[in-house]
Amino acid sequence: MSNTIERPQTIERQEITVEELEDRAYELKEKLLRLCGSYEGSVHIGGDLSVADILTALFQYGMRVDPSDIGNPGRDRFILSKGHAAVCMYIAMAIRGFFDYDEIVRTYGKLGSAFGMHPCKVQLPGVEASTGSLGHGLPIAVGLALHARQAGLDHRVFVLMGDGETGEGSVWEGAIVGRSRELGNLVAFVDRNRQLMTSFSEDRIVLEPYADKWRAFGWNVIEVDGHDMSALVQAIDSLPATDSDRPTAVICRTVKGNGVDFMERNLGWHAGSLGAADLERALVSLSKSRKEK
């Protein structure tokens, strides 16, 4: 009997244009707003809108995943460390073909639903980790990337963090280990929207010079406009090979509530719900912001 482990078949990335990605990002934001208008409770809509372009770029282009074969060992892994942006991830995955959007709307946040306010891997196949306790996503991703390296697998491990959670010591411990173990297959996207739940981040904890902190920990650093799809695609295309010795931090300059004028940089819209009139205002604003790009 042979002891050789069969290598997983490589999953190819989707072929898609920047214009098509922009269309899907708009679709995602519109569906987010409509869910926020139909759900009886609060939705973390401000932070959802700040990561919608990033999640679109990752799920529709950057990651090698197959919705029809979610257990394929050759797939790229994704950890949503910013767990309160779960509904944005759910919809991004639905647009890619993982889930049914109507099912998300029908059951979101309800008792027994697979689509909770924070993602749960036990409830929802296709989700790699249960998250929501901020500061834990990067350490989880480090472990997954280290396992892949030791097993000789060439997939990437992506993690999306909010900038506020990078005030946690566990993040920087993970950053040290990621560089020390030379995990070039590890990629951290940071939603640098400069807002916390009730304040602006720099008012509570000074993170600047932010990119230099990641560089000081030995990481490869890419800085982009997190709402510029072309720039996000270019950042993904410029990632070093998975067998390189430095993990990468993609620092995305974003706006909380992006695309909706009365939500942008508004601390009151960390979470909330939309009545019929506000939903219409939000959809009009989103449409206008798209035309102005």
Rank of each mutant, 00 (worst) to 15 (best):
A141S: 15
A86G: 11
R149Y: 00
K82A: 14
G112A: 13
G83V: 09
P119W: 03
L138H: 05
V105C: 14
F98G: 05
I95N: 13
L138P: 12
R106S: 14
D102T: 01
D100S: 14
H147S: 14
A114H: 09
A94S: 15
K110D: 14
T131H: 00
C88H: 02
I79H: 03
P119Q: 04
G126Q: 02
G83D: 06
A148C: 05
Q123D: 14
H147E: 15
L138E: 02
K121Q: 05
Y101I: 13
H147Y: 07
M93P: 02
Q123M: 13
G97F: 11
G116E: 13
V87K: 04
G109S: 08
H136R: 10
E128A: 12
R149C: 07
Q150K: 15
I104C: 05
L80A: 04
P139S: 00
Y90N: 11
G74C: 07
S133Q: 12
V87L: 10
E103M: 13
T131R: 00
L134G: 07
S133K: 04
A145C: 08
L146R: 13
E128I: 00
M89D: 02
K110R: 15
G143T: 06
A86Y: 11
M89I: 05
G112I: 09
L111Q: 08
G83S: 09
D102Y: 10
Y108D: 01
G97M: 01
K121H: 12
I91R: 10
R149A: 14
C88P: 01
L134W: 07
G74T: 05
V127H: 00
K82N: 12
Y90T: 10
G97N: 04
G137I: 06
L111Y: 08
A129S: 10
R106F: 12
H84C: 06
G135M: 02
H147Q: 15
E103Q: 15
L138T: 07
A85W: 01
A114E: 08
M89K: 11
K82D: 12
F115Q: 08
G74Q: 08
G112N: 12
A151Y: 04
A114R: 15
R75I: 09
R96I: 01
D102A: 13
F115A: 03
T107G: 07
V122I: 11
D76C: 03
L134A: 08
G116M: 14
F78Y: 09
V142T: 01
D102C: 03
D102P: 00
E103G: 01
I140E: 01
L124N: 04
I104H: 12
